Each structure stands twice: as structure tokens, then as C-alpha cells.
Amino acid sequence: MRNFPATPIEMAASLWRNRSLIHASVKREVLGRYRGSALGVFWSFFNPLCMLAVYTFVFSEVFKARWSGGGDSKTEFALLLFAGLIVFNLFAECINRGPSLILSNPNYVKKVVFPLEILPFVSLLSALYHVCISLSVWLTVYAILFGAPHITALLFPLIIIPFSLLIMGLSWALASIGVFLRDVTQFIGIIVTMLMFLSPIFYPASALPENYQRLLYLNPLTPVIEMSRDVLYWGKLPNFWMLLIYWITTVAISWLGFAWFQKTRKGFSDVL
């Protein structure tokens, strides 16, 4: 039976070795989402723009929400909220799909010699495409309302890259577990919904008592959302010590998820 290396070097080498296949798969997935629609990929611009307008109306007019420590600007609340949602939506899209990545592609397991380990990466890049679109909408609205975005916005990739590594590690693990335990799909849906309200998306972490703030930072989404708002909206440098710890932790999680996937993939064909 074929052995599948699980080293950190193989993790990176496999993605580089299959880069052409990854590019073609991501392109097919992005275009396939809008295939048959009159506006095509332009929907990827309209969706975040419409959602930004809806969030502004619902939270500023219906709920009369204001950002703690900020002004009374409705647009301020909408932009801060949407910045958090950009991060969360990336996480939710990939993690919700994770358990079904192998299950939804049984032919890749049984009939075709296919590098299964690239499937979570294809899912991630497809989601990152929509992050780029949402971010461009966010920056455009910010520029129209407040002027040129802060120079610190250029540091956003330093925050989103380790977050992507975390997502990759979890996706590899979930893709494997989902083959053997079908209930994990339902369980993950509940967990993602809980994390949406247990993350500082609709409120700043500083709005909670200090004891609860410590618990909130156990949520892996919290530092990413807070640092993203710092560099995008507030023009602050991220907490570099926190960022360094986050990089180290997410690299380790990414490799552990890959190692688990490689060690268990031999049993996929037996189950499917």
C-alpha cells in the first residue's frame, strides 16, 4: 500500500507540486458558483456591497447599536462590523465545507490518482477570492467616506496568512474525520454558529469585563478579528507578540492537521 509522507516539508511541497491543478480547480470552483447567472462573477462584488448596506440599516437603525468607545456614526459601526465578518466568513465557509470535502468527491478516492490533500487548499483559495472582493468593497467605502485608508492596512496579509494556516489544519483534520464520522458535519455547523456570537464581531472585546476578555481570547478568531480592525479601521499596528505566537501556533496546527490527514487517508477507500 502506498505511503503518504506527513512531514512539514511535504505539506508545502505537495501544494507547490500540484500548483497547476490547484489553480485550475480554484478557477473552476469560483466560476462554477456563478455559472448560468446573467451577471456572473460580478455577483461577488454585489453580495458584500448589499450585505454592508443591510448591516448598516439593521444594526444602526433597528437595533440602534453603536461601537463602544467610538462615535455615533452609523457607517463606523457598519465598517467595524463588516471587517469582523470578512474574517469570520472566511473561517465559516472553509470549516463548514471541511467535513464533506472527501465525501463529496468519492471518485477522486476510488477511481482517479488524485492528490486529495489539495482539496482543503482549493476550498481556502476559493474563499480567499471572496475575501479579496469583500475587502476591496470595504476599502472603497472607507475611502469614499473617510479618505485614503490607513497605511497599516498593508499589514493585513500578515494577519490573514496565519489564520489561513489555522483553517488549513482544521480543514485537513475535518475532511478526514468526516469520512469516518458523518455526524461531524452537523456538529461543526453548530460550533461555527456558536463561534459567530462568541467572537467579537458584533461588539469589541473591550466591551466585556476583564475576566470574560481572557476567555474570549481563547477563541482563535478573536485575535484575528481584533488585529484586523486595528490595521484596517483604527490605523494601529497589530500586537506583534500576539501575532508571533499566533504564527507559531497556527503553523503547528496546520502541520498536525496535514499529518492526521496523511495517516488516515489509506482508509478512505474502504469507507467510501
Rank of each mutant, 00 (worst) to 15 (best):
F88T: 03
L181E: 05
S199K: 11
L170Q: 07
L158F: 12
V41W: 12
N105A: 08
L272R: 01
T7E: 07
I144P: 09
R33T: 15
F240Y: 15
I161Q: 07
N107M: 10
L158I: 00
K74L: 15
I253T: 02
L221P: 04
F42P: 01
P115E: 04
Q213Y: 01
N3Q: 07
I159Q: 05
E61C: 10
F121S: 12
G178M: 03
G257H: 04
V109G: 12
F57N: 05
A259L: 08
Y203C: 08
P149V: 05
A38P: 02
D230F: 07
D183Y: 03
T56D: 05
D270I: 03
A252P: 06
A13S: 13
F4T: 15
W16P: 01
S104G: 08
I248S: 03
F46V: 15
G267S: 15
S134G: 06
W43E: 10
W255M: 13
I160A: 06
A153E: 03
S228F: 15
R182Q: 09
R97W: 01
W255Q: 13
I190C: 10
L145C: 11
A153L: 11
W241F: 09
D183A: 06
T222N: 08
L85D: 03
V271S: 06
P220E: 02
S60D: 02
M168C: 15
V112G: 13
T264G: 01
F258M: 10
W241M: 10
L272E: 00
P162T: 06
L81F: 13
W255S: 12
Y246D: 03
S20N: 07
V30W: 06
E29Y: 00
E93I: 00
A24T: 14
S206G: 10
P5W: 08
D72N: 12
E29R: 10
P157W: 01
M168W: 09
